[in-house]
């Protein structure tokens, strides 16, 4: 299978007032074409930095990266001719102009004549389902519609490779689902050859991506299909517990050798919390007694199926959004 994106020992450092911050620390990736590839990691893990380097907007400090076979530094212009980038939560464009006018403008930037631009915008708006919003001003669009508009913009130059940086950031459940369906369709129906998508939503990556890399503190710490990643923690034991009582941190759980990682989420019920815990071996009775010693009441215990979140818990020791 042809390689769409390849990085070799990619490093990016930023100078800050506190010294040098290494956002990418020797990233090695090889992404085959014809798929949606997910880059999963918490905020600040280096996802956006990597995507900005691959889209030629940022130079690496060292290392190499190739997109569509072209070097991102030495052949930046060729890379730009086959890619596009859509960032979630952004609203590029001019609020006072309509969706159609904004898209025509961008299409002209990509080299279309005015007439060609109008035609291309119609094609893309039909594909994305923007038709009824084309005459609305950009500043009148809802967040979900803006994201569709951004996706439409990302398709105007007919890119082979599309970078999507947190494409459902800030969207409600329904709009996020709709955007995910669109993204899947773009690859399945051959509009885009390869999509590299960053996200910090586990379910999004699990639902959409053919392969996934987990990035943490600028390093790729795991890579494979979602199933492969899950397989790597298949020998582990996962429980979800509903707790009541003492609040605060549960770091004492790490006293147990069996505990690899855990994540706490507040429940909808006041005073309750949900604890997801991953253990190297079955040790739930010791976990419960330790919790009870620390004045927690365990209301419910469920042994759970392995999810991508557990892979992350195992690798990092904490949840993605903590």
């Amino acid at each position: 299978m042809e390689t769409a994106i390849k990085t070799i020992d990619l490093v990016r450092e930023f100078k800050t007032s506190k010294g040098v911050f290494r956002a990418l620390d020797g990233v090695n990736l090889e992404i085959p074409s014809g798929m949606i590839y997910g880059l999963l990691g918490p905020n600040g893990a280096g996802k956006t930095t990597l995507i900005r380097i691959l889209s030629t907007l940022l130079l690496p400090t060292s290392g190499d990266a190739y997109v569509g076979g072209y070097h991102v530094v030495r052949e930046a212009s060729k890379v730009r001719s086959i890619i596009n980038l859509v960032s979630g939560g952004e609203r590029p464009g001019y609020g006072i102009l309509t969706t159609r006018e904004n898209l025509i403008y961008y299409a002209m930037l990509y080299g279309y004549s005015r007439r060609e631009a109008e035609r291309r915008v119609e094609e893309v708006s039909q594909l994305i389902g923007l038709d009824e919003f084309m005459n609305k001003r950009l500043n009148e669009l809802s967040t979900g519609m803006v994201q569709k508009y951004s996706l439409a913009r990302g398709l105007l130059n007919n890119p082979r490779i599309l970078f999507l940086d947190e494409p459902t950031l800030g969207l409600d459940v329904e709009n996020a689902r709709s955007i995910r369906r669109l993204i899947r369709r773009l690859v399945d129906e051959g509009y885009i050859e390869t999509i590299l998508l960053t996200s910090h939503y586990m379910h999004e990556v699990e639902e959409l991506c053919d392969r996934v890399a987990i990035i943490h503190r600028g390093r790729i710490i795991e890579e494979g299909t979602v199933e492969e990643l899950k397989e790597r923690v298949s020998s582990h034991v996962i429980y979800e517990l509903t707790l009541q009582g003492s609040n605060g941190n549960l770091d004492f759980l790490r006293e147990l050798d069996s505990v690899i990682g855990y994540k706490v989420r507040l429940s909808n019920v006041p005073g309750e919390a949900r604890l997801r815990i991953i253990m190297a071996y079955e040790d739930i009775s010791r976990v419960i007694s330790l919790l009870e010693r620390k004045m927690y009441r365990v209301r419910r215990i469920v042994r759970d199926e392995i999810s991508l979140e557990d892979v992350f818990l195992k690798l990092v020791g904490r949840g993605l959004d903590e």
Partner: peptide
């Protein structure tokens, strides 16, 4: 600030034309 600059740069056109 509005995110347009990224789009310009990706458009592969000289920025002085803009």
């Amino acid at each position: 600030e509005t995110g347009n600059l990224e789009v310009y740069l990706l458009s592969n056109r000289p920025i002085y034309m803009l």
